[in-house]
């Protein structure tokens, strides 16, 4: 059975461990890894006039940076190991977005690192893992 594994990735050590864990699973099952990077974003935040004007430009830059600096190296390494990889970069709430992608791709499982987000960030906005296990439509593995 070749299922899909959604992996949340933000470049941190924990996220790297989640990727290697997912890689082993995918390889064993001949599955696909859906590598996802979520840029934290709320459409209800407040912006200054200047930020409003530059938003489109910044968004493009952020997407390119995420693609080249974050996703490409990992995806390339996984492909070298013979694993099929899809990548997605999205804006939104991290847990909600991962759950939505697992639904839209028909994934078997979501795999993330224990503290994928920065420690301060998770303290402020609640931990991604905590939110995810409550809302995900598929089983989740939190890699320590």
């Amino acid at each position: 059975m070749s299922g899909k594994f959604v992996v949340g990735y933000d470049g941190s050590e924990m996220a790297k461990r989640a990727v290697s864990f997912a890689a082993a699973r995918a390889k064993a099952q001949d599955g696909t890894i859906v590598l996802v990077h979520v840029l934290e974003w709320s459409p209800y935040s407040f912006l200054t006039p200047n930020e409003v004007e530059e938003r489109h430009k910044r968004r493009k830059e952020e997407l390119v940076r995420a693609e080249t600096a974050l996703m490409d190296p990992v995806a390339a390494k996984l492909r070298e190991d013979g694993i099929t990889v899809e990548t997605q970069i999205k804006y939104g709430h991290i847990a909600e977005t991962l759950a939505a992608i697992s639904k839209s791709t028909g994934a078997l499982e979501i795999i993330i690192g224990r503290n994928g987000h920065s420690p301060i960030g998770s303290r402020v906005s609640g931990s991604v893992a905590g939110n995810l296990v409550q809302t995900a439509p598929v089983p989740c593995t939190i890699v320590p």
Partner: peptide
């Protein structure tokens, strides 16, 4: 509320943000 906003456009200036920015002026 964003009912008509394409989720793929997330990260762009939303209607809510344009409104609040203009309001603060």
């Amino acid at each position: 509320k964003g009912d008509y906003s394409d989720p793929d456009d997330a990260g762009e200036v939303s209607h809510f943000q344009a409104l609040t920015t203009a309001l603060s002026g």
